[in-house]
Computed example of a mutant assay.
Amino acid sequence: MARFYALEISQTLFGDACLTRRWGRIGHSGKSLSHHFERADEALRLFHTLARRKTGRGYCIRS
C-alpha cells in the first residue's frame, strides 16, 4: 500500500511556530494534525524526532 507522511513548519499570524503533520494513502486527502509552539526550536526538535522515527520505519525523505 502506497502511503505518504508529510511534515511542515510554518509561522502563524501571531508569530508562533506551527508544525503540521499530514499522512494517508497516496491519491487520497489523508489526515492532518497541527502542533503549535511559542519557539521555533521546539517545533524543529519535534520535526527531527518524527522524521527520524518515520525514516526508521521505511519512509523516504523527499523535498
Rank of each mutant, 00 (worst) to 15 (best):
M1H: 12
M1W: 06
M1Y: 12
M1A: 14
M1C: 10
M1Q: 09
M1D: 11
R3T: 13
R3S: 14
F4P: 01
F4Y: 15
F4Q: 02
Y5A: 12
Y5H: 15
Y5D: 12
A6N: 13
A6Q: 10
A6W: 01
A6L: 06
A6V: 08
A6I: 07
L7F: 08
L7A: 08
I9S: 08
I9K: 01
Q11T: 15
Q11R: 15
Q11V: 14
L13K: 06
L13T: 04
L13G: 15
L13E: 10
L13M: 11
F14I: 06
F14E: 10
G15Q: 02
G15P: 03
G15I: 04
G15E: 04
G15C: 05
D16L: 00
D16V: 00
C18F: 01
C18Q: 15
L19C: 13
L19Y: 10
L19Q: 09
T20P: 05
T20I: 13
T20Y: 07
R21P: 00
R21A: 12
R21H: 03
R22S: 15
R22V: 04
R22T: 10
W23H: 13
G24F: 09
G24I: 06
G24Q: 08
R25D: 12
I26K: 15
I26W: 11
G27F: 09
H28P: 01
H28T: 14
H28A: 14
S29F: 12
S29I: 11
S29M: 11
G30D: 06
S32V: 00
S32L: 06
S32C: 04
S34K: 05
S34N: 07
H35M: 03
H35F: 14
H35V: 00
H35K: 02
H36W: 05
H36K: 03
F37W: 02
F37N: 02
E38L: 13
R39V: 04
R39M: 05
A40M: 11
A40C: 10
D41M: 00
E42W: 05
E42I: 01
E42T: 07
E42R: 05
A43W: 00
L44H: 15
L44P: 02
R45Y: 11
R45V: 11
L46C: 04
L46V: 07
L46W: 00
F47K: 00
H48L: 13
H48M: 11
H48Y: 12
T49V: 07
T49I: 05
L50Y: 05
L50V: 14
A51Y: 03
A51D: 08
A51Q: 13
R53C: 05
R53K: 09
R53I: 03
K54Q: 14
K54A: 11
T55A: 06
T55F: 03
G56H: 07
G56M: 10
G56V: 03
R57W: 07
R57N: 09
Y59C: 12
Y59M: 09
C60E: 13
I61H: 08
I61Y: 09
S63F: 13
S63P: 05
